[in-house]
Design a protein around this nucleic acid. Sequence first.
DNA 1: CGCTATGTTGTTCC
DNA 2: AGGAACAACATAGC
Length: 271
Amino acid sequence: MPELPEVETYRHYFEATSFHQAIEAIEVEDRKLLTTDYATLTETLVGQSFAATRRVGKNLFAFTDGGHTLHLHFGMTGDLEYYHSSLPRPRHARIVFVFRSGFNLGFICPRKFERIGLVSSVEDYLKRKKIAPDGLEITLEQLTETIQKRKSPIKPVLLDQSTVAGIGNWIVDEVLFQAKVHPERLANELTPSELEQIHSAIGFVLRTAIEHEANYGLFPRSFLIHAREWDASPFEHPDQHKRCPEGHADIVQTRVGGRATYFCPVCQVIP
DNA sequence: CGCTATGTTGTTCC
DNA sequence: AGGAACAACATAGC
């Protein structure tokens, strides 16, 4: 479930499992997932080892000891799974890095929205895709400058990776709830105080999610995420997952910018 | 069967 | 030129 905190967790997993082992082969089940043609990808990477990583927003970059850069994007449902060759290939591991060590790194692509390929450099990729500063690094000034130029509701503006990198659909709802801003407030009408609260909430939500390795069930009770349908647990009281964490009201479910949206009609009001 | 989905990109209309 | 709105992408799961 790859938004920024998940990708950061995958980055750690990648470093812990797949460094310093020569690549023997790359198995590709569906070439549509590649952004580099198969022959070039193989010719470039076979024999090399992964030696460093970097994450910007939802993008993961892996650097080889030979100086090449691999880019991975996890789409909506991508994941990584490291496994020994004696075990069967994991379900939906449509791209597999086979290491000479006898282990494999599977790029799990259930819905084929994932992408992987070589890039000339991180900076080139970010520029080409207009990726804004990472959510953990962006300054209030940078965020303010972009938001004030936009006239649409704040929710789609924050989802736009050219505003700030790494925010996805559940995080934007959480950020707006923590900042007490209604998702349909127009971006260019937000006050300096609200912009400051949004900036601060972005850092708080991202850091909290990373601390818990994106394991939603462990997030503080004060998080709106527990009101989302897929957080429902059979051990919880059936009504509990639909109330505002502050107990003010029932959470409203609607659509903003074509996306499922949850908010508290009491904590987040349109003036 | 119908509906929804955590993301991005392409198209069309301003 | 570039923003806004929305469809399309491919598949799984309920």
